[in-house]
């Protein structure tokens, strides 16, 4: 893991789009080691796309995006940026865990095999060792009893906890969460958020795209508001939620926050 305070993510003027559609229109964003950075914004604002740029699942078209000390997708050599090979992308992603909205657990594997999969096939950890480590990670997310179940036998909340364990098994320096609770039934949201809170408390560097305002307020070091492919504003969660600086932010917050939550903030 990187030393505290060191910059893990530094984006400046990041642009991205498909054909004529601009999705990201110059995004400046930083994350320091050990920080939890929450990202909110209306759907289609580009927040998920930006998150997917961070581990190279989407290709940045302009600006500079440095993650874990590397310009994502390119290596500077002999005065030119050379595009990465698929192998170089793979090596880069080993250090970044990602949790998806729809879990994306490997459907043909048990929970335990899902967690052991990365170490076995990517890091070359021996089976026995990988499985015992996987068991520890499952215990940590409270699912040791479900180790041998297939994803379809687990509830959404359990699947998402397995997905978090799978990402953690790679010992990542940075964790990306793409709306991890948006596909869950309301009563299952808290069990996932609890695991994420635990991670934050242990000092994991996290970027969390979410609609869970209460989580952002409680756990986030920073809160960023995205709209129309740019960052509208960024600040300490409590300050930003209590006193948004832009009309756009105010309108969004009043549409997602219940009246009770607004009184609290």
């Amino acid at each position: 893991m990187s030393a505290a305070g060191e910059q893990v993510v530094r984006a400046s003027g990041v642009r991205m789009g498909y054909g004529d559609v601009q999705v990201l229109n110059g995004v400046d964003f930083t994350v320091a080691a050990g920080e939890v950075s929450c990202v909110i914004g209306p759907s289609g604002s580009g927040k998920s796309t930006f998150l997917r740029c961070l581990n190279g699942l989407e290709t940045v078209l302009g600006g500079s995006l440095r993650v874990l000390g590397e310009e994502v997708g390119h290596t500077l050599r002999d005065g030119r940026y050379r595009p990465w090979t698929p192998k170089e992308f793979a090596a880069f992603r080993r250090n970044i865990g990602m949790v998806f909205q729809r879990f994306n657990l490997f459907a043909h594997h048990s929970a335990l095999e899902n967690v052991a999969c990365g170490p076995v096939h990517v890091l070359g950890t021996p089976q026995d060792r990988a499985r015992s480590l996987a068991m520890e990670h499952l215990e940590r997310v409270g699912l040791a009893d479900h180790a041998h179940k297939r994803p379809h036998q687990l509830s959404g909340g359990q699947q998402q906890r397995v997905a978090i364990a799978r990402a953690l098994a790679m010992n990542p320096a940075l964790m990306l969460f793409d709306e991890p609770t948006s596909a869950l039934d309301p009563e299952l949201v808290d069990e996932v958020l609890e695991v994420m809170k635990g991670l934050a408390a242990e000092g994991m560097t996290m970027v969390v795209v979410t609609h869970e305002i209460a989580f952002a307020r409680e756990v986030g070091d920073w809160l960023t508001f995205f709209a129309d492919g740019v960052i509208v504003e960024r600040g300490r969660p409590r300050e930003l939620l209590a006193n948004p600086g832009h009309e756009r932010t105010r309108a969004f917050l009043s549409s997602v926050l219940s009246s009770k939550e607004r009184q609290e903030s």
Partner: peptide, 10 residues
Amino acid sequence: GQTEAAYALG
């Protein structure tokens, strides 16, 4: 999503 998860694992 299976492909994306596989890539994300490295």
